[in-house]
């Protein structure tokens, strides 16, 4: 089977800070990582390959530096990595990005038919969760988002457990299909040393604008219907009262509870037995 993993290199947003003077994003020194959700998609593809045989191809779009993420991804046991990188792709929103990636997948599909595409449920820098479904639509593949378990994979179908607010939905789709995945899908494994070495020596393929019959009007800023009009720091919630509970924990607790009831923040009524839900 041919598994394709869509993967994005992202700044580690847990390390992103706002510059206190200029009030802008401090991007310098923020490490780049593989989007964590994508890593779980890759893991699943590698596991399924080990089970049913086949090939794992990784596709990413980004600046030339994103090759590093691809090399790292290779170390988990993938077979091929392609980076879509061109100035013409820059400034693309999720609609345009899905167009570019789906075009590349289409080309791959023509020579090596794709069975299953994996993408993270969203990228941690944008959190849009749109590119995966966008790719599926463009390719005409069924999309199964928020996958937390691949229950079954046959030659023609994939059965997946999806996470929703009210419960888990078990859905079966015909192949080829696209899954976007949650972290619960699997636990990441460590790369073996031989795979690490293979990856260190591997040079990802780079496809640019002229590698495919791209339509320039569908990409970049001009091919993107949405654009950012303004960026600003989130409005803050102002802090309240800080109490020192070090010296007299009991007294502090008592006074806080008193205040809470005085202000009717929690009301005395039959919350009663309190028991678990």
């Amino acid at each position: 089977m041919h598994f394709v993993v869509c993967l994005k290199q992202v700044p580690d947003t847990s390390e992103v800070r706002i510059d206190p003077i200029t009030n802008t994003l401090m991007r310098e020194g923020v490490p780049s990582i593989i989007n964590p959700y994508d890593a779980h998609g890759l893991e699943e593809a590698i596991r399924l390959k080990a089970k049913v045989g086949g090939k794992v191809t990784i596709v990413s779009m980004g600046p030339p530096q994103a090759k590093e993420a691809l090399k790292k991804a290779m170390s988990f046991g993938a077979d091929r990595a392609i980076l879509l990188s061109d100035r013409a792709f820059g400034g693309s929103d999720s609609l345009a990005t899905a167009y570019i990636i789906s075009s590349a997948l289409q080309k791959i599909h023509e020579t090596e038919p794709i069975d299953l595409v994996f993408a993270g449920k969203e990228a941690i820098d944008g959190d849009t969760a749109q590119t995966g479904p966008g790719i599926a639509q463009r390719l005409g593949f069924p999309q199964l988002t928020y996958a937390i378990r691949v229950k079954e994979l046959t030659d023609t179908t994939v059965t997946v457990e999806r996470k929703t607010e009210s419960g888990r939905q078990v859905v079966q789709a015909q192949l080829p299909a696209l899954l976007t995945v949650e972290k619960e899908l699997n636990d990441l494994s460590y790369a073996t040393l031989p795979n690490m070495m293979k990856a260190a020596a591997y040079e990802p393929e780079v496809w640019n604008f002229s590698s495919l019959p791209f339509d320039i009007t569908q990409m970049g800023l001009k091919g993107s219907p949405t654009s950012v009009a303004r960026i600003f720091a989130p409005p803050g919630r102002s802090g309240g009262e800080i109490m020192d509970g070090m010296k007299d924990p009991k007294g502090t607790a008592a006074s806080i509870v008193q205040k809470i009831f005085q202000q009717n923040i929690i009301m005395v009524h039959p919350l009663s037995k309190g028991g678990k839900h």
């Binding site: 460590y190 790369a191 073996t192 040393l193 031989p194 690490m196």
Partner: peptide, 9 residues
């Protein structure tokens, strides 16, 4: 010997 699987060099 490294800490990885198949980790001898």
């Amino acid at each position: 010997r490294t800490g990885r699987a198949e980790g001898d060099l």
